[in-house]
Computed example of a mutant assay.
Amino acid sequence: MQIEKLIKMANAIGEFFNADPDKEAAVESIKNHLLRAWEPRMRREIIDYCRKDGNGLAEPVKQAVLKLEV
């Protein structure tokens, strides 16, 4: 899948959950959504991209993606 599309999708998820005033909870919700809704290949691609550059990803999304690695 094209990384640009993954970035757009991840940021849209981030926008939805970022409405939560508890920013830690928002990051956790983003992470959980990515775990439930994205297939492993998509997660691997966004994790690799975030590790290398992460340009274009919103900060809460970056935090959530990096938590997927653990």
Rank of each mutant, 00 (worst) to 15 (best):
E59A: 10
K52Y: 02
D48K: 15
M42F: 06
L57T: 03
G56F: 00
A25R: 12
Q2Y: 12
E69L: 12
M42A: 11
C50T: 09
Q63P: 05
R36E: 08
D20A: 11
R41K: 07
D53N: 04
L34W: 06
A26R: 15
F16A: 11
I46L: 05
Q2E: 14
L66I: 13
R44E: 08
E45K: 08
Q2K: 14
L34A: 10
L34Q: 09
E39S: 14
E69H: 07
R44D: 14
L57P: 02
A58Q: 07
K5Y: 13
A58F: 13
A37G: 00
A26H: 09
L66E: 07
N11I: 05
K67I: 12
N32Y: 08
I3S: 00
F17L: 10
N32A: 11
D22E: 03
G54M: 00
N32P: 04
G54L: 01
Y49D: 05
H33A: 13
D20L: 10
I3Q: 00
L35N: 08
E45I: 04
K23F: 13
V27H: 01
L6T: 02
N32M: 14
R43S: 05
C50K: 03
H33Y: 12
A25Y: 10
K8N: 05
K5W: 09
A26F: 15
D20M: 11
M9N: 07
M9H: 04
A19M: 08
N18P: 05
E59T: 09
D53P: 01
R41I: 10
R44M: 12
E39K: 14
I46C: 01
K5C: 05
A25L: 15
I3Y: 00
M42V: 02
N55R: 13
P40H: 05
I13A: 03
K23T: 12
N55T: 14
D48S: 15
R36G: 14
L6S: 03
M42K: 04
G54R: 00
L68E: 01
K67N: 04
N18I: 12
E15I: 14
I7L: 04
V61S: 03
A37Y: 07
A64L: 08
E28M: 06
R44A: 13
K23N: 09
V65G: 06
A12C: 09
V27D: 02
I3L: 09
K62S: 01
A10M: 12
E28W: 01
V61A: 06
E59C: 07
E4C: 05
D48Y: 11
R36P: 05
P21L: 05
P21W: 06
Q2R: 15
E59L: 14
K52Q: 07
I7R: 02
R36W: 14
V70A: 10
I47D: 02
Q2F: 14
N32C: 09
C50D: 04
A37I: 12
